[in-house]
Design a protein around this nucleic acid. Sequence first.
DNA 1: CTCCGTGCAAATGGTTTGCATCTTA
DNA 2: TAAGATGCAAACCATTTGCACGGAG
Lengths: 138, 138
Amino acid sequence: MKETQLIALFRENGYKVTPQRLAICEEVLSSREHPSAEMIFEKVSKKYPSLSLTTVYHTLDLLKELELVHELRFDNHSSRFDPNTSIHVNVICRRCGKIEDYNSDSIQKKWRDLVSEIDVQSIGQRLDVYFVCEKCND
Amino acid sequence: MKETQLIALFRENGYKVTPQRLAICEEVLSSREHPSAEMIFEKVSKKYPSLSLTTVYHTLDLLKELELVHELRFDNHSSRFDPNTSIHVNVICRRCGKIEDYNSDSIQKKWRDLVSEIDVQSIGQRLDVYFVCEKCND
DNA sequence: CTCCGTGCAAATGGTTTGCATCTTA
DNA sequence: TAAGATGCAAACCATTTGCACGGAG
């Protein structure tokens, strides 16, 4: 998503455009590491030293509202934010907590087929696969 | 799982058998509603009025340790406990939070097929489908 | 008799809220 | 200039921890 699109989306929905907001959104939406609020705060506050965690949380709420990110909560108290809102698999290391997305047309097709067996109108999903990554397997 | 099996499992693993512990385990393991710690506490304390939430949490840790339940954390601050640790789909209403399991041989087969496309050794999974149930759809 | 479990009370920590100030439109 | 955003400090609240007592083995 380009910045101009994002700004348009904000305006359409009655949200103001501020530098912090843009920086936080850019950070989250371009991330591949499924960052926590804290991780986002660390990164963006390099550029905006006055930034508060509060603003990060407010902005994440906004992104959830706009359906641009999903929140993934885990056992170990961490909440991670995922800018990929389409059907995909979160491949997660049980030891170090690293999360990687796996995505393909075939995965989407297979999942849709699987869900069609269940008699409900799906409005979303969360697919996690747990494993132990090479680094942690020593 | 029968009580005798459970007791044997406790003993094997060096855990003592207490009335509270048995009652909590029985409640969780036989539940179909994916209860929260609070819900379990409410139910079991009917029978054991002196029960504390602390003990519920301790016992849930124990059940997680023994891989008899999975913990599912959600956006809305609730942690729910699922005694079904095999491959299945959590069918979840976005509005009221009700969770039902969906399970079938065909689901398990399809999921295994889907995962085989990903180059990892799966040690577990979490499959959520979100929808809006009839009650909430009015 | 020893160790573990129970349950009270207090601590924890990620997230949320109240509010005064600043910014966008 | 009005409405909304920011960021500090305080509140929240589910969960965890410290500790003294009691029950299991």
